[in-house]
Amino acid sequence: MVHSQHGLHVLVCGGASDAHTWNLVCLQLLLEEAGHRVTNLGPCVPEELLAQECLTHRPDAVVIGSVNGHGYQDGLRAVRRLRREPSLAAVPVALGGKLGVDGVRDAAAADALRAAGCTAVFDDGDLAAFHTWVGGLAGHSAPTRTTADLGVRAGATADLGARTRATAGAPTGGSRA
């Protein structure tokens, strides 16, 4: 476990309609192990509540997880709402998980998310890429962690990104808008 001197305060939450929490628990542990401080708002966070919590906590980054298939829709609502607050215009916002219902990454929907102000879209759920992205935010190069370090064994990631709908050239994790 490497503790950084540049620990960030990261706000973690689920999409407005998403009840899944195991991904949020994992994200929290992962961030804490990298030396960051986490406020975990839990599942089903409506965009209004998210905005209020961001205004209260002033996090260094916002991480939204969604696996229930409504991620593209819920993510867009959340990002649009956050970017309406002048003081939240620059906070980095990442969205990741299983964002659609058909196991296919939707490049157009990911582009729409980035155009709306989403800083990074991990629609392949890639935790290693996410780890690197957060490290970049903290202003230091994060120790590289492979998916194996993260306990995700072979096969666990085999499905992720296996099928991509017309994503030619569309970067996923780590792309900045």
Binding site: V25, C26, L150, V152
Partner: peptide, 8 residues
């Protein structure tokens, strides 16, 4: 209660 332990 580590991310790796939980994922395993």
């Amino acid at each position: 209660m580590t991310s790796a332990g939980l994922l395993t």
